[in-house]
Nucleic acid binder design. Structure first.
Lengths: 312, 312
DNA sequence: GATGTATATAAGATATTCTGATGCGAAACC
DNA sequence: GGTTTCGCATCAGAATATCTTATATACATC
């Protein structure tokens, strides 16, 4: 059973359904000996006979029945796969209700909607900005078609596709620019400004510093990355922001931007949708556009040398 | 995607897991060009790229992620299939709790337990006789491991394996032996003795005569085939019994046995067990023994000429 | 016993798939 | 800044697998 081939599975299924080698061979558009040999091969591989030969055809053994169950399951997946690739050809069109988390939306969406309009003129994206937990609810509830957020999501009913990763960078007041970059332990002793409870980015930042999110904090919470950066600018403390936000948020504030030493904190951005979504084939293509935008953003920033291609 | 092969699936899975062609090729014990070509083939078949090539390895496209999901599912089935055939090698041993319906048990079981003891000396069958509905409950409840009964059962949680079919024959008083065999319409006008409510055989017999089981009947109900035949013997009416029962039940009664014209009534005997049963590999082998007994019974009866091998 | 149906086997022809060598490009190294 | 390393693509010949045609064998039916 180790050298099983899909051809054998197909032959076997036809045989199980039609009941004679000859009929199955005809259905598979091969000659009867060809089919016979493949079935024989299969039985040798399995170690037990799959069917009982009689003068008027064949019938499955109990073992054959079990194998046939599996064979049908595999062919069903194959069928699905076939539909998937066929549908991947057609261009997405119609309404697309897309949810995005607040720490991504303002930076990524401009590029995304531009590119989507270029590539899929018949697509009408309807955007919605919410925090992760709410997006998931809306997804499961079919109130949106897909969401762009930080992975992992870990909902069995949802498919998640990783698109790209991005680093977190440290934002300090301009006058601290020359100080060495703190490690995670040092960071814990500094006055760290974070987003309010509920933002996944807050949790991720805290976990980088090894601080439990439940721990009582005397830090200030802001409602947007923009607020946080502005507060750093006036010397209230320091903060972390995702790299994607750097260009926009630091334009109008007297702050310095520093990258951490390895291991650098990062988050994985992905797109998720219902496993059962009929738009899956379109969503894949849309995800590809979103990824391209994300990668482009990551490169077109003059923060340091180009980050280079890496698996992450 | 129409000429997909399992080899390609395996290569693709390794590639998706390991991230580079070279590593995947090594894991699959082939050279890197071999793997590259198969992946290329796959992408051509699908019409869209499965992965994005970068200088330090590859990463899945959204489409690739979807395909990989399916690939993993197929490999899981394959794994399962492998376990199935491996286990099919070992001989069944230990306790086997087997349920059988009353219209089969007395005729088939003697042969079955004998043969099981011969073929699988380490197996200890524990038998239990009940009607179909009860057997199913006990199966679902894990109080028995398998059941021999008339198909179809149609419980999604159960696997059913067809073993053989057997005809129903007409039992009439000895003195009516020379009369022509009634067809189903004529039969309806005769005094037909049947088993009590709850036996699947009763339902099957009624459905052969096109009589709804709910219809009020003035016929007599017996609690066993034996009773029915004895009553026919004293001239109370006629009855149907499964062919398997003929030899034993007609030995001590003054009755005649006749087969119907086509289409002959028949029932399909099968074995069922929980889909999740860990003994599945053993149950297959046991089912095979039961089938052999059934077929042997069907042939060793001198009722008419040998029935011949037929798909039914 | 002759015939029809159905599977098994054998030998040569045909495709498919693999290997080993080579080339090219991008990153990493010194 | 040149050199090395890593990783994928391509190519031609070799090795396998698979198919087809022709033939043999088994069983049941007439």
């Amino acid at each position: 059973m180790r050298n099983l081939t899909l051809k054998q599975i197909r032959y076997f299924d036809a045989l199980a359904r039609l009941g004679t080698f000859s009929a199955a061979a005809e259905a598979c558009a091969v000659t009867q000996p060809a089919l016979s040999m493949q079935i024989k091969e299969m039985e040798e591989g399995a170690g037990s006979p799959l069917l009982e030969r009689g003068p008027r055809g064949v019938r499955l053994t109990a073992f054959g029945t079990m194998v046939h169950q599996r064979a049908k399951a595999m062919l069903a997946i194959l069928e699905d796969l076939d539909g998937l690739s066929r549908a991947a050809g057609g261009a997405p069109a119609g309404k697309l209700r897309l949810g995005v988390i607040p720490t991504i939306a303002p930076y990524l969406l401009p590029a995304v909607i531009t590119r989507l309009a270029e590539e899929f003129p018949d697509l009408s994206p309807i955007l919605r900005e919410s925090m992760t937990s709410r997006l998931i609810d809306e997804l499961l509830d079919s109130r949106i078609d897909a969401a762009i957020l930080a992975l992992p999501v870990d909902e069995p009913a949802l498919t998640e596709v990783a698109l790209f990763t991005e680093r977190f960078v440290l934002i300090r007041p301009q006058q601290e620019a020359d100080r060495p970059v703190p490690n995670r332990d040092k960071l814990r002793e500094m006055r760290l400004l974070l987003l309010e409870e509920g933002h996944c980015f807050r949790t991720q930042a805290l976990s980088f510093c090894d601080m439990p999110s439940t721990q009582p904090r005397e830090m200030l919470d802001g409602s947007s990355l923009s607020t946080l950066v502005q507060m750093v600018g006036v010397g209230v403390g320091v903060t972390l922001i995702p790299e994607m936000a750097v260009e926009i948020e630091t334009r109008s504030a007297a702050v310095s931007v520093s990258r951490f030493r390895d291991p650098q904190p990062l988050r994985s951005i992905g797109m998720v949708w219902r496993k059962s979504s009929p738009m899956e084939a379109h969503l894949m293509q849309i995800a590809e556009v979103v990824r391209a935008c994300g990668l482009r953003l990551r490169q077109s920033r003059g923060l340091t040398t180009l980050p280079g291609w890496r698996r992450d």
